[in-house]
């Protein structure tokens, strides 16, 4: 019986194998890049909102504390999105004619809540709790970034599990004194490691890497 393949086919097969390997590596790289891309993680992307609310103006310009609006952050899993009543506490007197605030006034008149676009949205299988984090010395800006510099809200961290674990494994690298938790100007000191270790002991912070700590 004659040979099915000509000997030259060997070269073709080798080239083919090479092509497959390169393609697979490329696909893998594309997958990785895609996963961490802006498209997927939405990091550093400003979100359009029904009212162009500026944290920069309210936090940096006016010096209003985070908790003035996010009232439940110390006692609940949710930090709390303020009801229109909170906005109108000032805006029934200040900027009463501003067209940009018409949706707020309408919401107050009709009792229909504003529909904000959620910026920090964890998957439903993660049970995150704000109150325990702020009690243990995790500052707002550690996760949410320099909110006081954001005209419109955006995410600065991926919120991926690997990112959470960086701190859950080594809390001493990130925690700060409790009285600085709501400060937007706090920066880790040069002796953060030392300070962190002391706080971890003082606040009895446990490194939580058990799956069921967050996934229940």
């Amino acid at each position: 019986m004659a040979q099915l393949f000509h000997p030259n086919i060997n070269i073709l097969i080798r080239i083919l194998v090479g092509v497959v390997v390169v393609l697979a590596a490329g696909l893998g790289l594309a997958y990785y890049q895609g996963y961490y891309s802006v498209y997927f993680s939405q990091v550093n992307v400003f979100r359009e909102q029904p009212v162009m609310f500026s944290h920069k103006h309210h936090v940096n310009g006016l010096g209003i504390d985070c908790r003035y609006c996010h009232t439940s952050v110390e006692v609940s899993s949710s930090a709390g999105i303020p009801p229109t009543h909170t906005c109108m506490g000032c805006h029934s007197q200040v900027w009463t004619e501003a067209p940009i605030l018409e949706p707020v006034r309408e919401s107050y008149r009709t009792g229909t809540p504003l529909q904000w676009v959620r910026v920090h949205d964890l998957p439903d299988f993660v049970y995150f709790n704000h109150s325990i984090h702020v009690k243990k010395g995790v500052g707002c800006t550690t996760c949410h970034g320099q909110v006081d510099q954001m005209p419109l809200m955006m995410q600065v961290n991926t919120l991926f599990m690997g990112w959470c674990l960086e701190c859950h494994r080594n809390p001493e690298d990130y925690v700060r004194p409790r009285e600085e938790v709501f400060s937007v100007s706090w920066v880790p000191p040069s002796n953060q490691k030392e300070l962190g270790r002391r706080l971890v002991e003082e606040y009895q912070i446990k490194s939580r890497t058990n799956c069921s700590s967050c996934h229940r």
Partner: peptide
């Protein structure tokens, strides 16, 4: 693996969800 998001967005309500 990256297309299925039904566990990310389960048929339950988070706070303030529509």
């Amino acid at each position: 693996s990256s297309c299925r998001l039904d566990m990310h967005d389960q048929p339950k309500y988070e706070s303030y969800e529509a």
